[in-house]
Simulated scan of single mutants.
Amino acid sequence: GALRRVLRPGGRLIIMQPNARVVGGAFWDFFDHTLPLSEKGMAEALGIAGYEVIEARAKFLPYTTKSRLPRWPILVRLYLAFPPAHWLFGGQMLVIARKPGGGAS
Rank of each mutant, 00 (worst) to 15 (best):
R5N: 04
H33A: 03
S105H: 06
R12L: 15
L61T: 07
M42N: 01
P73D: 05
L3I: 08
K99W: 01
R77Q: 11
K66V: 14
L35K: 13
P100Y: 00
A2F: 13
W87R: 15
G47P: 01
Q92F: 07
N19W: 02
R21V: 09
L13D: 08
K99E: 07
R21S: 09
A45N: 08
G102W: 04
V76H: 12
W72P: 00
G1H: 11
L7H: 00
G10C: 05
F60R: 01
I15W: 00
L35Q: 11
F60T: 07
W87M: 07
S67V: 11
Q92D: 05
F30P: 00
S38W: 06
V53A: 04
F60A: 12
G91A: 01
P100N: 03
Q17K: 12
F30K: 05
T64W: 02
P73Q: 00
L75F: 14
L75S: 05
K59E: 12
G10E: 07
R21C: 04
R4Y: 02
E55H: 14
A20Q: 02
I74D: 09
P70V: 05
P36H: 06
P73Y: 04
L80Y: 00
K40R: 15
T64E: 14
Y51P: 10
Y63C: 07
P70C: 09
R71S: 07
A81E: 01
G91N: 02
M93W: 10
L88S: 01
A49M: 09
K66G: 08
L88C: 02
R12F: 09
